[in-house]
Design a binder for these strands. Structure first.
Lengths: 352, 352
DNA sequence: TTCGGGACTTGGAACGATCTAAAAATCCAG
DNA sequence: CTGGATTTTTAGATCGTTCCAAGTCCCGAA
């Protein structure tokens, strides 16, 4: 007893060790592990005791290999450091964990090259599916080629560039960007704003295009002019937004309000405005997009569009799990509505 | 040619398929894949062509099984939605990716129960190591029992509760909480503050204890009194902090400044102060801890302690990879200094 | 005493890679 | 040519699990 009760310190405990330890076959131990009703109560008890005694831990990789299954999902995000995506990831992980899956994380830092590398590396671990929020400029053909057709893909937040024939063979979960930006713009117009800029984001990104389209839609519907220099591009982060702030005022007529690409940009813009002695929420109206946690805590608090990223994460995970259950179902494209949250950063024009 | 150029649509391409496809053995294909110099140039070319043609993707799980290695690291965080940890995770993932590892993500939402479940589930995937920022109240014995002694553990940010004999057999990467809080307190004292509270966090958490100790240290060194009701506990998030704000003013003498457990708490407290008509940075001084991105953007911008979470993530990953290289080295305990960042939220007492 | 059949158990072949030791092919000097 | 050295390739076992088909045991019916 003393001999085998001290398993060799440098090897993991396996089924065979347990089997040897209580004198049954590996097959029986396997049945016990999986709670099969086939095995006798006494045997089960004996095996379970031995499992505990030796401190066995299941090797899911081996099981997955044999069963040709997978118990992981790859989650690839363009910017994990952005609180919006951090919340999203939390939601995904919670839901996946509930479904018995494990999250393989990859963040691409908005680089298409890294995205390819990360996808490639994660795919070698044979995930059951992929949730991807693509980097800006990420190409449909390329992504499809590295993911292959066998692994289901759920696209979040952005479309991929480039057409795929005949129809994108993946599911999509998108925010209603256009409607959201339209709501924000209409809200500013209702406050009496007339000279409204669209600030931030890159024109190449699909979500930016959609948000810009919503802005244009609202402006046109209200019969308002749009000056070309009211469209300022910048990277979707605070730093670049603050740096680009000045560009709004190079030419006249200068805008008195801005619909921003997202909250990060809006917060950066407000910072830039302060540095110019312009007080957002009084001298200049600003709206954001996403309603990240700090949106309610900035000064002034930010008027923005709420998209409840954690719930989106949960939803994304559930959509993918559903797809795994029914691989043959029609690809879905879900557009979730966003909600306007009015706070202090939107105001009537100062000179009105 | 036409027959085998269309691999069966429903099975993954394996080494054997490639071997069959170009009439060599599996062993040879394996050598090619791993860039062995043993294989003839022509054969290599032939195999590589076939790999491309069939769209082979490497199955790292199978390889890991055979080689008894692992190419993943588990990253378990108590609160991924907190931007501090999101940044940290980004740093970890970047560094791990560089080392050829993949990140298995798990977030515990500050629940010890979930932490156990998550750790258990991730360990079944046989990670080479674990990076853990434990949930509040997480117990050393329990964690050690589920992780086992074979898998190296790197502890970040918090110590585990309960003693382990003779010495904790894991590496630790900690912030210099005590010194940080002391610096913040000394800064307030230098501004002329005398009635300084310590606000937020749970007394059970090690980081909170350390920060509180730093505060006490500075107060004592300056010969200042500490009233018991100047120690307010709350959950380390904005919402609870805002709700607990009132507790500071139930008894006199009321404090005129507060050293907060972290930035989230400080931002919440500032929100609560506003709601009471008290303007932080003018009527009441506030400091935070972490220097999360929005600390510089709040109104007033937050005086806090910078810990550069992304760099910490990188460092954590590198420490763990180092440990994998030298499993027998002495356990390390690294305490990284934090830097005081003075911004607008700290001010002299209003009545001075 | 034999037989059918439930209730359990089990040996051995998978899964997709790697490793080892040895075979096969090639080369080259004598 | 031949024999040994060198280069290249390979069969088969192996990693830790699951699956399959077949085995054992025991009990009551024929």
């Amino acid at each position: 007893m003393a001999t085998d009760s001290t398993p060799h310190a440098n090897r993991k405990v396996t089924l065979a060790d347990i089997a040897a330890g209580c004198d049954v076959s590996r097959a029986t131990v396997s049945l016990v592990l999986r709670g099969s009703p086939l095995v006798n109560k006494l045997t089960r008890a004996r095996v379970e005791e031995e499992l505990r005694r030796q401190g066995y831990v299941y090797n899911r990789a081996a099981a997955n290999l044999r069963r040709r299954t997978s118990s992981s999902i790859a989650l690839v995000l363009n910017d994990l450091a952005n609180p919006f995506f951090a919340e999203f990831a939390t939601g995904v992980d919670e839901a996946l964990g509930g479904g018995g899956y494990v999250t393989l994380l990859g963040s691409t830092g908005e680089s298409v090259t890294r995205e390819q590398a990360v996808l490639g590396s994660l795919l070698e671990h044979d995930p059951a599916g992929v949730i991807l929020s693509p980097a800006e400029g990420s190409d449909a053909g390329q992504v499809l080629r590295t993911i292959g057709v066998r692994t289901p893909l759920l696209l979040f937040n952005r479309e991929l560039a480039g057409k795929v024939s005949p129809d994108a063979p993946w599911d999509r979960l998108m925010l209603d960007n256009q409607r959201g930006a339209r709501l924000a713009t209409e809200h500013l117009i209702a406050l009496g704003q007339k000279r409204i800029a669209f600030f931030g984001g890159h024109a190449a990104s699909s979500s930016c295009q959609q948000r810009h389209a919503g802005y244009v839609e609202a402006m046109k519907a209200a019969g308002l002019r749009i000056e070309p220099h009211w469209r300022i591009e910048c990277a979707p982060n605070r730093v670049d937004a603050a740096a680009q702030c000045g560009a709004l005022f190079f030419e006249s007529p200068a805008p008195t309000a801005a619909v921003c690409y997202n909250d990060a940009v809006a917060l950066g813009l407000m910072l830039g405005l302060y540095q110019r002695g312009i007080q957002p929420g009084r001298d200049f109206a600003v709206t954001g997009f996403d309603d990240i946690a700090e949106a309610g805590l900035s000064a002034p608090p930010l008027t923005t569009l709420a998209s409840t990223p954690r719930a989106r994460g949960k939803q994304a995970a559930e959509l993918l799990l559903q797809r795994l259950r029914e691989p043959q179902a029609e690809p879905q494209r879900i557009v979730v509505p966003v909600q306007l949250v009015v706070r202090g950063s939107s105001c009537p024009p100062a000179t009105a």
